Computed example of a mutant assay.
Amino acid sequence: MEHTTNAVLAAADSLIDAFSRHDREKYFAAFSMDATFIFHNLDRPLRTRAAYEAEWALWETRDGFKVLSCRSSDRNLQMFGSMAIFTHSVETKAEFGGEAVTSHERETIVFERQPEGAWLAVHEHLSRAS
């Protein structure tokens, strides 16, 4: 069980690290193609990874979006066989149109073990920290 827990935490850390460096390719590779996303700053869910990638590209071109850093704290992991639920608090520094903005949010990421053994994110839910 400890090996499995470590594998999921490594997958979560890799995803967070790629996000914090605005490494789109590595970040999106951490999600399954059919992953779903719910973000407090969007008026609709994103039902596929491709939909999120398109939204991210829009943020970049329309809003000048760029992630500058991301810090994860208050981490928790629950294991359910081939599924895992990772929750944490997130402090993100990003740039929008040349202006740096810091946000404080809570995030849930659901991971699923793939047939070859890798853990991919299949759902992400981001909410404002109160």
Score class of each variant (00 low, 15 high):
E2M: 12
H3T: 09
H3D: 06
H3N: 10
T4W: 05
T4A: 06
N6Y: 14
A7F: 08
V8A: 04
L9W: 14
L9Y: 11
A10G: 11
A12C: 11
A12V: 14
D13W: 13
L15V: 14
I16D: 05
I16H: 08
D17P: 00
A18N: 10
A18Y: 09
A18I: 11
F19S: 02
F19L: 06
S20A: 08
S20K: 05
H22R: 00
H22T: 05
H22L: 02
H22F: 12
R24K: 06
R24Q: 09
R24N: 09
E25V: 13
E25S: 12
E25I: 09
K26A: 14
Y27I: 08
A30Q: 02
A30I: 06
S32F: 11
M33V: 14
M33S: 14
D34E: 08
A35I: 06
A35H: 01
A35Q: 03
F37A: 03
H40A: 07
N41C: 07
N41W: 15
N41D: 07
L42K: 01
P45Q: 10
P45T: 09
P45S: 10
L46H: 04
L46I: 10
R47S: 12
T48R: 02
T48Y: 08
A50E: 11
A50P: 03
E53C: 07
A54C: 09
A54P: 04
E55I: 09
W56F: 15
A57I: 14
A57M: 12
L58Y: 13
L58W: 15
W59T: 06
T61R: 06
T61S: 05
T61H: 03
R62F: 07
R62H: 10
R62M: 04
K66I: 00
K66W: 01
L68D: 00
L68E: 01
C70E: 09
R71H: 15
S72A: 12
D74M: 14
D74S: 10
R75A: 13
R75D: 07
R75W: 15
N76T: 13
L77C: 11
M79P: 00
F80P: 01
G81K: 04
G81V: 10
S82Q: 10
S82H: 14
M83Q: 08
A84R: 01
F86P: 00
T87W: 11
T87D: 04
T87F: 13
T87L: 04
H88L: 05
H88C: 13
V90N: 06
V90K: 05
V90G: 04
E91S: 10
A94K: 02
A94M: 04
E95K: 00
E95Q: 00
G98A: 02
E99M: 12
E99T: 01
E99Y: 09
A100W: 02
V101C: 02
V101Y: 01
T102A: 07
H104C: 14
H104M: 11
E105W: 11
R106F: 09
R106P: 03
E107P: 05
E107Q: 10
E107H: 07
T108M: 08
T108L: 15
I109W: 07
V110P: 01
V110K: 03
F111N: 05
E112Q: 11
P115G: 06
G117F: 15
W119E: 04
V122C: 05
E124L: 12
H125Q: 05
S127H: 05
S127D: 02
A129C: 09
S130P: 10
